[in-house]
Structure formats: C-alpha cells, structure tokens
Design a protein around this nucleic acid. Structure first.
Lengths: 193, 193
DNA sequence: GTTGTTTTTGAATGTTCATTCAAAAATGGT
DNA sequence: ACCATTTTTGAATGAACATTCAAAAACAAC
C-alpha cells in the first residue's frame, strides 16, 4: 500500500483553472502537468485520462460553488437581501478580468455536452445541485412573504438560473458593471411577478 | 483570370453547420473538406486558414439570422405580437434536436472569444447587429404603447438578449418545450416593468 | 487557339498531442 | 527490517492534425 503524495483538492482546483482558461480541447496534457505539478503517469493513474480529470474537476467545482452559495444564505438578513448580495457578487465576478470568472460547467457543457454523455452527467448533477439550493432560498423568501408569486419554486429557480446563464454570456461581450448591474436588478424584479 | 467554382454561401453554410456541431477545435480540416466539398488547398486559397473559414462562416451566420429576424417583424401584427412569435420560434428551436439549434456565435465566443481578438471582433459585430435590430423593434413597441418602460431601448434590448442567451444555455440541460415556454413568457413580461 | 492567370487537387510535411509503459522510488503492514 | 503494493517518473509511441506545395486543370481575354 501507498497513498498518493499530492493533495487531491488543490490538484483539481489547478485543473479547474486550466480548463476554465482554455477550454478542454485547447488545454494540453502539458498544460495540465504544469498546472497540477503531476507527471502524466500520475494523472492517468489517478483520473484515468484527460476527460476523467475534467470530470473530477467539475465535481470539485460543484462542491466549491455550493459551499460558496451557502455562505451567502446563512446570514441574519432576509432571503431576498441575500439574493441581492449574491447577484451583486456574480455581477462583479462577471465584470472582473479573472479568468475564473467563466463558469467551468457552462463552458464544458457548450464544448462537450452534446457529444459526451459522461461529461454531460457530471454537468447536469452540478446544475441540479445549484437549482436545488436556489429552490430552498425561494421557499424561504416565500415564507418571509418576500416573494408572492404563485409559480412553483422549481419554475422560479429555473428562471433565475436562466438569467444567470444569460448574464454570464452577455458579460463575455459587454463586461461593464454598469451594464450588468441593471440587468441583474431587472432579473430580480422578474421573480416577483 | 478564373472564377472560383464553388458557391460561397453554400460552402459557408456547410462550414457553419460543421462548426456548430462539434465546435472549432474538434472540427478537423477533414470534416470541413467533407462538409464543404472543397479540397484543403481551395479552403486555404479562399479563406486563408481554418480560423478564416470560421470567421467567414460567422459573418454568413449574422446575415442569415438578421434576415430571419426581419421576417418576423415585417408583418401586419403589432410589435409585441411579433416578439411573442419570435420567442416561440426560439423556444422551439432550442427544444428541437437539430444540431443547428445552438448559436454558432455564442459557441465560438465561449470557445475562442477570450483568446482570439479577430474572432471576437466578428462575434461582437454579429451581436451588435442583433441588438440594433431588437432596439428598432422595441422603439416600435413603445410607439404603439405596448411597452411603457422608461428604460432606454438599449437597456431593454440588452435584457432580451441576455434572456435569450440564458434560454439557449438552459435548453442544453433541460430542452423540454414545457419548461422553456414559461421562461420565455416571464422574459417577455420582464420587458414591461 | 493561344496565353496568362487562377483555382483545384491531394499527397507530403512536420508538429503537436494524448496515452503508454517499464523502471525506480516510496510507503504501509507486519 | 522486509515484503507487497502502489505511485512516480519521464521518455517513447503512434495517431491526428493544420498547413504547404507543386503539378494539373480550368477558365477568361484576346
């Protein structure tokens, strides 16, 4: 017996960054060995192949994003206030020049989702987790009478997810905070109808 | 002197489909020669290289989409009715299994936009054209008192574009019409606030 | 019909890439 | 301390790829 030397999480976060930067195809194994500090053989031993590393990275991404999400919604403020702060955070993320501002899941979905069922499954799991987290927040907001819509939590959560998808794509072409902010505000208002 | 034998538009539409299917990186020159019917040398003679063919294809895409758009808004119905029909069309497109349901511009943006200024310029031109077309429609709708918002046409157009971006991405993961339809309706309602 | 120019053809080129593998090193169990 | 097992190492492999190029064919102009 012998345990792997490397730290799995930090390797996966390095891979996450690399994949988010260049996309799956354009990220070479050489890029990945450089980013993770692992030699090719180690990567293949631990993750099977390049695709396996991507899938593991997306799973880590899900975990990290879910943790971050919950940070925003375990405060003493009201659900809707938290949601505003969450959207502010996303707007600033979109407007930043940090290469990690892109969503690894959306990017991988666009690149591979239609042609690779394995990757699609991991991505769908991520979005299902996200949707579930949002549904919980919406339920809380309804209970607090901050949302009075008669639509299901599922529908409202999907609307918000759609909006954030759109915000992210929009920001690729026009990343100015002063343009993104009003879009986010209008999105939030849409929850109330 | 000698004129090229091939029909430029149909070659570009074939390339469009190929690129939309697999993305830029995964579409090989072999794929492209098969799809277009041109030999490698001819492609390089006419478009410089693979990237040149992509850019020309995106320009053709802009033309085709703009034409299609205008079809929807040269009717005897009111602007807002036309807009509804337009969104219905997009919803059905998103829900279909046609590989061309993806947007070549968004897909290329996600894959190359951050790393290639040439491609980004062509994509930005496409979206600017689209935004301009939508602004015109919104101006018409305001004039017909179908939209009373005090926001600028630009802001409202950007909101709609963001929404359609989001709808498209959302449809990758949940392509059922019955889920997309309500999202589109809510999007339209958002124009009125 | 001849000439000059351009396109077409498709095999050849050289690079880049994901993956493999066998040897070496490291570790946990006893 | 020793064995069994696993990981690490990094050069080697073979396939896939974008691009080039020189010869051939097609055309327009006259």
């Amino acid at each position: 017996m012998r345990n792997a030397e490397f730290n799995r999480e930090s390797v996966l976060r390095a891979a996450m960054t690399a994949f988010t930067n260049k996309g799956f195809s354009k990220t070479s194994m050489q890029d990945l060995t450089k980013a993770t500090g692992l030699h090719p053989g180690s990567i293949y031993c631990a993750f099977n192949n390049k695709k396996g590393l991507l899938m593991a990275a997306i799973e880590q991404y899900q975990q990290d994003k879910s943790d971050k999400f919950k940070q925003f919604f375990t405060t003493q403020d009201s659900p809707l206030t938290n949601l505003e702060h969450y959207l502010d955070y996303i707007v600033n993320e979109c407007a930043s020049c940090d290469p990690t501002r892109a969503c690894l899941a959306s990017k991988s979905l666009s690149e591979l989702g239609e042609h690779d069922a394995d990757v699609l499954a991991v991505i769908n799991a991520h979005f299902a987790c996200w949707q579930h987290n949002i549904e919980t927040v919406i339920a809380d907001a309804k209970q607090a009478n901050e949302i009075t819509s008669t639509d299901t939590n599922e529908q409202l959560a999907q609307y918000l997810i759609m909006g954030i998808f759109g915000l992210r794509t929009f920001a690729y072409t026009q990343p100015q905070v002063e343009k993104l902010q009003p879009l986010a505000k209008r999105l939030l208002k849409g929850l109330q109808q």
